[in-house]
């Protein structure tokens, strides 16, 4: 065979060059398709949406620019103001309650209790259910004619009343309830992972120094969980802002427009009301809002960590 003729000392040198360049290139080659796809379908379409928001597009996209007219129309819509008010209520309550409950559950589960392996998946399970299922199940449960209220009446407690779902002033809170039910377990899992990552030696040292359990958690554990708070905050914020299916399944935006959110507003104006430019403008405002919250937070957190 001809290979036997080659001086063995040459072989490594021959292989080394192509291998080095392949090793250089492999990650890029593997990442290239997803990079290209993200470039076009995320950032490309963001730019496209921004462009459309400055046009008079109605049913189909048109590209002639007409300035800030769509934004003026957007902020003249009472439903848009309703949507902004609702996302403020929903977003704040959803994020705060999920984090508070998730952290509490995680701390309780972290007390080395016996059946943790059984309890953890029970709390985590709702995350495996799609928002449509969550919404529909809670719709049945919260509807006074089919769910909780009717059951209580059937059991003889006829003065019981829980009509938030059909009450325009309270309906937005039913969305908070359903959303929190779904995401709390996930938060708990994140915090639990964070708690398990804390060095036991530090806790022992604190114990020896005579720190109370409360002080240990407040001074040591919770500050150590800071990166987890960051992750939970980012995940929950974007989930709150893109909540669409939950609202559609639970209330359909009603009663009236009492549970309109920016996401449902954007969809209906873009696709069913033939006011594409107003829909695009609302999408841009949503993007800017998310960016305004998350970018400074990310920036400060990541910069601190690097130091």
């Amino acid at each position: 065979m001809s290979s036997s003729v080659i001086d063995p000392a040459v072989i490594p040198r021959m292989r080394a060059r192509p291998r080095a360049s392949l090793q250089d290139w492999l990650p890029r080659i593997v990442l290239a398709p997803s990079f290209a796809v993200i470039l076009v379908f995320v950032y490309g379409f963001i730019l496209w949406t921004v462009w459309l928001s400055f046009t008079h597009s109605r049913m189909m996209p048109v590209y002639a620019l007409t300035g800030f007219d769509s934004y003026a129309r957007l902020f003249a819509q009472p439903s848009w103001w309703m949507a902004l008010k609702n996302i403020a209520i929903f977003g704040v309550l959803y994020v705060v309650i999920c984090i508070a409950l998730g952290l509490t559950l995680a701390i309780l589960l972290d007390q080395k209790i016996r059946i943790e392996g059984v309890l953890r998946p029970i709390y985590l399970y709702p995350m495996a259910v799609s928002f449509i299922v969550t919404g529909t199940a809670w719709k049945w449960f919260l509807n006074p004619g089919t769910g909780l209220e009717k059951t209580m009446h059937d059991w003889g407690w006829t003065s019981f009343q829980f009509d938030w779902l059909v009450n325009a002033d309270m309906a937005i809170y039913t969305i908070v309830i359903a959303g929190v039910w779904q995401a709390t377990g996930f938060c708990m899992a994140m915090f639990l992972a964070g708690l398990r990552g804390i060095d036991g030696e530090i806790l022992k040292a604190a114990q020896i120094d005579g720190a109370s359990t409360y002080a240990t958690y407040r001074r040591i554990v919770i500050p150590a969980l800071r990166p987890v708070f960051l992750s939970a905050f980012i995940v929950l914020t974007h989930m709150a802002i893109k909540s669409y299916d939950l609202v559609i399944a639970l209330t359909g935006g009603g009663p009236g427009n009492a549970t309109e959110l920016p996401s449902t507003f954007m969809y209906s104006y873009t696709f069913t009301r033939n006011q594409m430019s107003v829909g695009a403008a609302s999408a841009v405002i949503m993007l800017m809002t998310v960016a305004a919250i998350i970018v400074p937070y990310l920036y400060s957190e990541l910069r601190e960590r690097r130091q």
Partner: peptide
């Protein structure tokens, strides 16, 4: 839809 928005708000007590 703008008409329906107003009608539904009245009908559902808002």
């Amino acid at each position: 839809n703008a008409m329906a928005d107003v009608i539904t708000k009245e009908f559902e007590g808002q």
